[in-house]
Amino acid sequence: MTPLDFVISLSLISVAAGALGSLVGLGGGVLIVPVLVRFYDIDIRLAIGASIVSVIATSSGAAAAYVRDEMINLRAGMFLEIATVTGAVTGGYLTTLLPARFLYILFGVVLAYSALATYRHRHAAALLSHSDDRLANYFNLHGHYRDDAEHRDYDYKVKNTWIGLAMMYVAGMVSALLGIGSGALKVPAMDLAMHLPMKVSTATSNFMIGVTAAASAGMYFARGQIDPLIAAPVAIGVLAGSMLGARYLGRATNKLIRMIFVVVLLVIALEMLQRGLR
C-alpha cells in the first residue's frame, strides 16, 4: 500500500468513525484504534496517539453544531469537566503503575455492564420535573432542549450530581490511561445517573470529550505518539464525519440513539476484553 492509498483509505474510514462517534457521544477513537492496528498493522502506541486526535476532532466538529442547535447542557457539561480533567491528570501519572492488560479487562467489564444497564432503560424517557439535588440546584444545572424528532420543547431537572462527578472522574482517568475520550462512561453517567435526556447526554458527552482528551494530549505529543502521516487523514476524515453526524442527531429519537449506543458499547467491550485477555 502506497502512502497515497493509505491517506485516502484512512480518511474515508475516519469519516464513518466521526459520524458514528458524534451520534453516540464517543470520540471515534475506539473505532480508529482497532482499524489502525488490525488493518494497517500500525504500532499500538501510534494508534493511541491518533485516537486522541480523533477524539478532539469529533468533539470540536460536532459540538460546534450541537451548541448552535441547543442540544447540549452547557452548564452541566462544564461543571462535570471539573471531574474529567482532574481524573485525566491523575490518570497520566497512573499509566506507569497499572498494567495495561488489567485496564483493558476492567474497562471491558464496565462497558458491558453499562450496555446492559442502558438496554434495560431503553424505554425510560420520563424527564424529572423536580430535583432535591442541592449541587444541581446551586449551580443551576437543569436544562431545556428542543426535540426535532417530536417537535416539542422539554424542560428537565438533574439529580445525583455527586454520582455523576464520581463517574466522570473515573472516565477522565480511563481516558488518559487508554487514549480514548471515554464517552462510553460519560453518557451513562448523564443518561442513567443524572437523568439527562439520552440525546442531550450524547451531545454533552461530545462537548466534554475534547477537553478531557486535550488534558492528556500534551503527554502523548511529548512522548512522540502523534505521527503526522496518521494524524492528518484521521483529523480531516473525523471532522467531516462528525459534522455529518451532528446534522442527524436532532431528528433521531432518544430510543434509537440508545439502541445504537448499546450496540457500539458491546462491540467496544468485546474489543477491550480481547485486548486484555490476549
Binding site: P3, L4, D5, F221, D227, P228, L229
Partner: peptide, 29 residues
C-alpha cells in the same frame, strides 16, 4: 509532504506507507 517527495504520491511501484509510519519514522514531538 506529498509534493516534497514524489515517491509519496506514486500510485504503484512507490514505497510502502510502513516505511513512513514505522518505529523509526522521524517526526517532531
Amino acid at each position: 509532504m506529498f509534493l516534497h517527495d514524489p515517491r509519496y504520491a506514486a500510485l504503484d511501484g512507490g514505497i510502502s506507507f510502513h516505511a513512513l509510519v514505522g518505529g523509526h519514522a522521524e517526526f517532531p514531538h
